[in-house]
Design a protein around this nucleic acid. Structure first.
Lengths: 206, 206
DNA sequence: ACCTGAACACCGTTCAAGT
DNA sequence: ACCTGAACACCGTTCAAGT
């Protein structure tokens, strides 16, 4: 992120005369977060970076390749952000509750995901989305399994929970004006967890 | 495809020399179903209809207006298609089961919906999606209420069920290659219904 | 009432030439 | 190694002129 070649120790982490592929990818990712996937256009990006659009094609063969690079950049970041936080929690039911709460309240980390959700049309988005979804599904399945569900039930519940997650984000996007008050929202999240997280497996009440 | 201007009583209900706004809207809707929202472009559509793109602007002020007209056309169709079918079923739990089954198996009526889901980015898509979602949520809430849930629980369960529906379609779109076998899929739908549809309210076992 | 044809703006892409 | 500038294709939009 900071200096590169002959930088004479500038304190502002702006940019030197020359750009790298990573600079373009990060700029694209910023744009996605701000204005969505559709906003990633070569000419506006070039303007923003203070170069002509022709120079873009030295770094990437096409606009799609840039998008792909940007999204893969996000993919590796989010992987540790989400899973790193949760891995520490040993109790599976507690971990599931945390996962739901994290998803419900930590809006920032879902900005890019939501942007991708709105742009599944785009060929560059689909493969990334697919890998991320697959990974999350497997994680959920394992957690439900540990929480006491059978193999097949755990798979199905994971599918349902993930669908609820995706659909929840969609509803957030769709019903932006008629947003329910905070209290209402918390009650919904509680309802969701109560419905989807299995109860403690009954055991000898000592 | 067949004749045009001086058509001397063609029996095929193709089109006369002149097009109406509805012709354009329907053509756009067909394109959306076939290739998605992004495929709706004035020039290709005009080619397909055998006219020059200039003529499009006699019917619509912009591409966006065409998209809007096409989607509103779909909106009014789907409204009766979905609700008409279900309105006839008096028992609410039975109606919910039918709704889930309909969604799971009647892929055809969801093609446009899925296309819109992939293109929420587009400003013409959002308001339509919002109205449709709102209507369906209200319908679900009423059904859950009739099935015995309290007012607030019914609302939350409706939100959850609709989120599961939307997310389910997303997963279908995302995991196209690794599609599970039919049997597996049916088992998932059963699991979903068992989890989301409330049990019969206990009553005097006569 | 509906269509053509030419024009312009904007963006993706190419490429020879610059530093 | 990275950038400029001019060119071209494609699509959205406008508009005067046709039928």
């Amino acid at each position: 992120m900071t200096s590169t070649e002959s930088a004479p120790a500038s304190d502002k982490p702006e940019r030197k005369g020359r750009l790298s592929a990573e600079d373009w990818a990060q700029a694209a990712l910023d744009l996605i977060a701000e204005q969505g996937v559709a906003a990633v256009a070569v000419e506006p990006l070039a303007r923003r970076l203070g170069v002509t659009k022709g120079s873009f094609y030295w770094h990437f063969p096409s606009r799609d390749a840039l998008l792909q690079a940007a999204l893969e950049r996000w993919e590796s970041f989010e992987q540790e952000a989400v899973f790193g936080t949760l891995e520490a929690i040993p109790d599976p039911r507690e971990r599931l509750r945390n996962l739901f709460q994290l998803v419900a309240h930590e809006a920032k980390s879902h900005v890019i995901y939501s942007a991708m959700l709105k742009a599944l049309d785009h060929p560059a988005v689909q493969p990334v989305m697919e890998r991320v979804s697959q990974r999350r599904l497997e994680y959920l399945t394992a957690s439900f399994r540990q929480a006491g569900l059978g193999r097949s039930d755990a798979q199905h519940r994971a599918r349902l929970a993930y669908a609820a997650y995706v659909g929840f984000l969609q509803l957030q996007l769709q019903l932006q004006q008629s947003r329910p008050p905070r209290e209402e929202f918390e009650a919904y999240v509680e309802h969701m967890m109560a419905t989807l997280i299995p109860p403690l497996p009954r055991q000898e009440t000592h």
